[in-house]
Design a binder for these strands. Structure first.
Lengths: 211, 211
DNA sequence: TAAGCAACCGCATAAATATGTTAGTCAGGT
DNA sequence: ACCTGACTAACATATTTATGCGGTTGCTTA
């Protein structure tokens, strides 16, 4: 069974190299190698590939956008993202948009073919450093409470209002206390959270999920 | 440099097999191979291994609990989880408790050694089918995409700084622009996000995760 | 009973922020 | 050529925030 590939890669050398490598391997066939994603959907229609190698950093429509476009109309074709950096945000974007794998360009050819096979057979190949990123994200997103800044009840209420964008004055009104009292509470909150501005406190509230 | 291993595996055949395999490979040394986790912490103290192979399904204290125990006192030692099934729930448990990798027992010996090396050098090796699970979990839990306020590039940068607690002055310095320009950007941001204060913008940035 | 703490309030001042208005340059598209 | 939008910048003014100090009350606990 022949695995039919489509390649998107703006660098001509790399594009050629990948094509040669893959065409030179049994069981694989490169249908086309494009230098940008401007016509992904048409390409997809004409070639109907089994698997796509998609560079992330490309001029015009970049790899992530290409990925999205494809996934809007087709969730079968396997898509392997290729990139130079194991950039946190891109990894996240890619996998939450349905990429089947995420590998670094510096991956040696033999490994690359292995990865393609894995993806084709339903796996999700990832360079180890990428996998590390993913695991970190994962464990950070279900962190249990993290630190305990032991805010008092009243302080928690105030922080809540801050998060909801209330000004001191509005908080004073809502809580039936003087604005100076609001100040006092907030100063205490800042001390406990080790911050020194409203927006930092808000950010911390979100990050540490103490709302 | 010798990588020192500890193995936890209840099946005697497999335990022996793993030990032989690893001891027979250059650069690896099995310090001990235990049939359960009942004394993990003591074992850890006495052997001080670089890496632990931990079976998930064991009588007594199972692999996941062993993992937790270890991570409570030591976050340096690499821990590779071994299992028969790519069970969804276990994978999640393991990675959110700080496992460095998760591989199937049916992994061929050569691959296994490769994985150990990867883990030892800071990677996060995963059997492809496991990686698939992880990716699925990831994309399923993060399917809700925030609205698009179409902030310009520059505006996104500014918002980023706001979220990180920078003052206008600091942002101006970081971005090499005048403080008044920062103001302009921020005013635009407020319009686009429909807010009218820094902390509201920060809160919205988190809620709609547009960073 | 004294100490500690949360909650309350006030005053003062400096810094930061919000809002408005105006305006130049530049790139891209109609 | 014109228009739009992004990016840049300035000036003015009012409001909000951050920080310092001071204080009273009432409840809990060593």
């Amino acid at each position: 069974m022949m695995t039919k590939l489509l390649i998107y890669e703006d660098n001509p050398q790399l594009r050629e190299g990948l094509t040669m490598l893959i065409n030179g391997s049994d069981g694989f066939e490169v249908l086309a190698a494009c230098k940008n994603c401007n016509n992904v959907l048409e390409d997809l229609e004409t070639w109907k590939p089994d698997l796509i190698l998609m560079d992330i950093d490309m001029p015009g429509i970049n790899g992530l956008e290409g990925l999205k476009k494809i996934r809007q109309v087709n969730s079968d074709v396997k898509i392997l993202m290729l990139t130079v950096f194991d950039d946190n945000r891109n990894v996240f974007q890619a996998i939450s948009n349905g990429a089947n794998g995420y590998i670094l360009k510096k991956t040696p050819p033999s490994k690359l073919l292995e990865y393609i096979e894995e993806a084709q057979s339903g796996g999700a190949p990832m360079t180890a450093s990428i996998a590390t990123q993913v695991l970190k994200m994962f464990s950070s997103m279900n962190n249990e409470k993290g630190e305990d800044y032991n805010l008092s009840d009243r302080e928690k209420q105030v922080l809540q209002f801050l998060v909801e964008g209330y000004s001191y004055k509005m908080i004073a009104n809502e809580m039936f206390i003087a604005i100076d009292t609001v100040r006092s509470h907030i100063k205490k909150i800042y001390e406990k959270l080790h911050v020194n501005s409203k927006s930092e406190a808000v950010a911390k509230a979100f990050k540490d999920k103490l709302l």
